[in-house]
Design a protein around this nucleic acid. Structure first.
Lengths: 338, 338
DNA sequence: CGCGTTTACGAAACCGTTTCACTTCTATTA
DNA sequence: TAATAGAAGTGAAACGGTTTCGTAAACGCG
C-alpha cells in the first residue's frame, strides 16, 4: 500500500513534448540560458507550464549533493523560547530558499544523537542545534565524517569547536544588577533550578556570582534560592533573612519566574512593595502580572536569524571557517516590579 | 563551493568489502534476511559496522517513492498553540519512524501554497496542515495531482474534503456557559477579534450566539466585544451597560484573554469581584493572574497525535478512505476567576 | 576558401538505492 | 537417477534528475 503516488510528469516527458533532449530541459530548470536559443527557451517554458511539470527534488539532490534543507534540533519545543527561535530560523531560511527539517529531543542526549544521524542520512545541508550539551565529541565526529556543518543556537558547548550564536547574557546580568542597585535594592536573591552541566543556567549563575559583590559591595550577602524545591520554603527563607531591608529577586529564566510568581501569590506577596522582581527572559504574560515585570528580553528571534546567516556563509563561502562565537545583546525592560 | 560533502561510503563499498553483490546488502538493510545465509548476514553486519556505512536516504526514497517525512504547515508558529501541536505530531512521528518538515505561513494563503508545492516537490509522504482556510480548491487539486494526503489540524475547511482533527469546542462552549450560568452570572460578554472567513473564531462565535439565549433565556442581552479595538473602550462599555449586575466575560481564545487582562489592569478591575472571566484556551500563565483564570483547555497535544495516527492509517492502510472529522473533547478548568 | 571560434544542443555516464528476472547450488522426492 | 524445489544469491535496469564531453552548424576573418 505504501508509496503508491500518482505518476508524475518527468523531465523526459517535458523533453519529448518540447522536442529537445532532457539535458536542455535540465539547463532550463537551472537557469542556464547562456547556450540556448530564445526559441527553445520559450517552447520549453510553454510545455512546462502546460504539463504542470515540477522537478523531483530527491533526484536533483541525489546528483547535486545539496538538498536546500537545513536540520533544526531543539531541546524543548514547548519552551516559549523555541517558537521564537524557530520563527527566526524559518523566516531567514525562506529568504535563502531553504526548508527546515525539525526535531525535538526533550533534552535527551541519546535522542539528540539519533536525530543528528537521521538528518545526516537525509543529507541536510547543515544542522542548527539547541544542544543538550552532552554530545560534543559525537558532533565533532559527525562533522568530520560527513562534512555537515553544525551551528549551536543559544546553548554553547565546552569548547568553541562550532559556530555559536547566543545572547550576551553576561552583559545583561551586569546591566540588570546595576539597575537593581541604582533603584536602591540592598539584597538580591538569585532564583535558579538545579544546575546541570555546561548549560545556560550555569553561565548565568556564574556571572551573577561574580557580578554581585562587584556591584553590591564585597560584603554583600549572597542568596541562592533553589527553584527546584516545590514548596514555598526557599522564598520564605529569603523573606525572613532579609527582613526590613529593600530586597529583590532575580530569576535565572522564564520558567523559574513563573514558579516565583506562583510562590509569591501563595504567600500573598506583591511586587514591588514586598519585593522587587527582575526576570531573565521576557515572555508575553510578564507584562500582565503585578502590573508588569521588569525583565531581560533575549534576542531570540535574531539568534535564529544569525544562525541561518552564519550557516549560509559556511555553506556557500567558507566550509572551513574558524568557529566563531556570535553574541547578541539583550534588552532590559523596566516595568512596574522594580 | 556548495555541495562538497566528504565522500561517504556507499552500498558498493560495503558489497565489495563483504564479497557479495549490492542486492544482498540492500536486502540486509531492509531486513529481508530470507534469502541469506547466517554467515553472509554476520559478515555484512560486521562490514557495515566497520565501515560506518549509512544508507543514503535520498537514493532510497527516489527509488522506493516514500520518504518517511511528513510535512507540517502551521499558520503561526509563535502562537502558544503551535508548539504543543508540534510536540504531539513530533512525538507520534517518532513512534512511527517519521521525520517532520515544518513550515510557517504567517497566515498567508500564498505562502501556504508555496510551501505545499515545495513539500510535494520534496516528496513528503503526507501533509498535516493548520490551514489559513483559503486554499481548499488548491489543496484538492494538489491531492488529485500528486496523491499526497492532507490532514487538517484544528482549523477546518468549508467542506469535509480532508480528514480533520479538532477540538470539540462547541461542546466546550456549552459547558462553559452552563458553568457561568450555574455560578450565578447574569450577563456574559463575548470578547472576540475581527472575524475572518471560516476560522475557529467564527465557529466559536456562532456557537456562543446559539447557546447564549438557550442557557441564559431568550431575552438575555447579547454582548459582543471587539477585541481588535486597541483601547479599553469596549470593556468600559460592557461594564457600564451591565452596571449593578453579576457579569462575566468569555474570550474567544488565549490571545484575546491576554488583551482582556491588560485592559482590566488598566481599568483597575479584578476577577472575580468586578467581573468573572472564562478563557477559551488555557495557557500556562493563566494559572497565575488574579489567582488563576477559569479556562477551557484544548486537547492540542492529542490533536497532534491524532493527526499523525490518521495519516499513518491513510498512508499504510487506506489511501482513499472517506474524509473523516475527528473531534477531541476539551476540558473546563475552574479556577478563581469565576 | 580555409580555418578557428562560438553557439546550441545531445549522448552517455553518474548519483546510491531498489527490484525484477535470472542463475547456481544443494537437498529432496518420485 | 532424473526431475524438482527451494535456498542463496547475482546482474542489470530502473528512479529522475545533473553534468561532462563531444560535435554539428553557423559565423568571423584574413
Amino acid at each position: 500500500m505504501a508509496g503508491h503516488k500518482k505518476q508524475k510528469v518527468t523531465i523526459i516527458d517535458v523533453a519529448q513534448a518540447a522536442g529537445v533532449s532532457k539535458t536542455t530541459i535540465s539547463r532550463y530548470i537551472n537557469g542556464k540560458f547562456e547556450f540556448m536559443s530564445d526559441e527553445s527557451r520559450e517552447r520549453i517554458a510553454k510545455v512546462i507550464d502546460e504539463l504542470g511539470y515540477r522537478p523531483n527534488n530527491l533526484a536533483r539532490s541525489l546528483k547535486s549533493k545539496e538538498t536546500k534543507v537545513i536540520g533544526v534540533i531543539v531541546a524543548d519545543i514547548t519552551s516559549p523560547f523555541s517558537p521564537i527561535l524557530l520563527k527566526g530560523i524559518s523566516d531567514s531560511c525562506e529568504r535563502y530558499g531553504y526548508r527546515m527539517l525539525i526535531a525535538n529531543t526533550d533534552d535527551d542526549a541519546s535522542k539528540e544523537r539519533d536525530y543528528i544521524l537521521s538528518m545526516i542520512d537525509e543529507r541536510v545541508d547543515g544542522i542548527i542545534i539547541n544542544t543538550t550539551g552532552e554530545n560534543e565529541e559525537f558532533m565533532t565526529k559527525m562533522y568530520n565524517d560527513s562534512g555537515t556543518p553544525f551551528i549551536l543556537a543559544d546553548r554553547m558547548a565546552r569548547d568553541l569547536v562550532f559556530d555559536t550564536v547566543r545572547a550576551a547574557d553576561g552583559a545583561a546580568m551586569y546591566r540588570a544588577l546595576h539597575h537593581l542597585h541604582d533603584t536602591g535594592y540592598e539584597h538580591v536573591g538569585f532564583f535558579v533550578e538545579k544546575l546541570k552541566s555546561s548549560s545556560t543556567r550555569v553561565h548565568r549563575y556564574e556571572v551573577f556570582h561574580k557580578a554581585y559583590p562587584e556591584i553590591f559591595g564585597e560584603g554583600a550577602l549572597f542568596y541562592k534560592l533553589d527553584a527546584s524545591v516545590p514548596d514555598v520554603s526557599e522564598l520564605q527563607r529569603f523573606v525572613a533573612e532579609t527582613e526590613d531591608s529593600k530586597r529583590a529577586i532575580m530569576t535565572v529564566n522564564g520558567v523559574v519566574t513563573m514558579r516565583l510568581m506562583k510562590a509569591m501569590w501563595q504567600l500573598g506577596l506583591h511586587a514591588p512593595e514586598d519585593m522587587g522582581i527582575c526576570s531573565f527572559d521576557d515572555w508575553d504574560w510578564m507584562s500582565l502580572v503585578d502590573g508588569g515585570l521588569t525583565a531581560v528580553a533575549q534576542p531570540t528571534y535574531r539568534v535564529g536569524c544569525e544562525c541561518v546567516k552564519r550557516m549560509m556563509y559556511r555553506i556557500h563561502h567558507n566550509k572551513d571557517a574558524m568557529p566563531k562565537m556570535i553574541e547578541l545583546p539583550c534588552e532590559l525592560i523596566i516595568r512596574n516590579s522594580t
